[in-house]
C-alpha cells in the first residue's frame, strides 16, 4: 500500500458516493448512463469472483470488493426502479456489445493463465478500461453535463489515473510487488480515454463554469 494506491481507492469510493448522492438528492438519474453502470457491475462481478476462491488477502481488500459489488448493484437497482422514469434511453445509445466482445477477445487472447478465473479477471480489466465510454458518449451527445455528474466522472477517472503512479512506486520501491502487464496497459488506456474529459473538467468546472463542450 502506498499513498497513490490509497488515494486512488479513496477516489473510487468518493465517486460512488457522489453518484448515489446525486440521485438521492435530485431524485433523478438524468445524465447518468445506465449502460456504463451495467458494465461496471459486470466488471466487479467478474473480477471479484475470487472472493469465494482465492486465499484471503486482507480485510481491506475483501471489504472494498464487497462495497464495489454492492454499491454497483444498488445503483442499478435504483436506476431500474425508483428513478427509471428519469432515465432517457434515447440518449444512452452506445453499442456496448462491442465493448463486451472486444474485452472478451482480449481476455481470451492474452490471459495471465489459461484458467476460468484468470480469463474472467482479464476480461474485467479490459472492460473496466472502456466502461466509461457510454457515459462519455452521452455527455458528448447532449453537449453538456450537470456539475455533480462531472465530479462523479472525474473521481472515477482519477481512481485509475492514480493507480499509474502507484505502479511506478511499486516498481521502484516494492521488492515483493508483481506488476501485472494487463492491468498496467489497460489502466494507461483507460486514463487516456478520460484525457479529453479531464482537460475540459480542469479548464471549465474547476473554474466554476458549466461543463459544456466547445
Amino acid at each position: 500500500m502506498n499513498i497513490f494506491r490509497m488515494l486512488g481507492d479513496l477516489s473510487h469510493l468518493i465517486s460512488i458516493f457522489i453518484l448515489l448522492h446525486k440521485m438521492q438528492t435530485s431524485k433523478s438519474c438524468s445524465g447518468v448512463s445506465f449502460k456504463s453502470q451495467v458494465l461496471y457491475l459486470v466488471v466487479y462481478v467478474f473480477r471479484y469472483l475470487d472472493l469465494f476462491t482465492n486465499p484471503f488477502m486482507s480485510y481491506y481488500n475483501t471489504l472494498m470488493k464487497i462495497v464495489f459489488i454492492a454499491s454497483s448493484a444498488y445503483t442499478i437497482y435504483l436506476m431500474s426502479t425508483v428513478f427509471k422514469p428519469t432515465h432517457d434511453p434515447a440518449i444512452d445509445t452506445f453499442k456496448i456489445e462491442y465493448l463486451l466482445g472486444g474485452s472478451l477477445v482480449m481476455a481470451l487472447l492474452f490471459p495471465p493463465k489459461w484458467t476460468f478465473m484468470e480469463i474472467s479477471w482479464a476480461f474485467s480489466i479490459w472492460l473496466e478500461s472502456v466502461a466509461i465510454l457510454p457515459q462519455l458518449f452521452m455527455v458528448q451527445r447532449t453537449g453538456e453535463a450537470e456539475t455533480i455528474t462531472t465530479h462523479y466522472i472525474f473521481a472515477l477517472g482519477a481512481y485509475r489515473a492514480l493507480y499509474i503512479p502507484n505502479w511506478i512506486w511499486r516498481y521502484m520501491f516494492d521488492k515483493k510487488a508483481k506488476l501485472e502487464t494487463i492491468a498496467v496497459v489497460a489502466g494507461l488506456a483507460q486514463t487516456l480515454l478520460y484525457s479529453d474529459f479531464f482537460y475540459i473538467y480542469w479548464t471549465k468546472v474547476m473554474k466554476g463554469k458549466k461543463f459544456q463542450l466547445p
Partner: peptide
Amino acid sequence: AEKVEGHDEL
C-alpha cells in the same frame, strides 16, 4: 519472498 496467488489490487 513467498508467492501470493491472485491479484492484490482492486
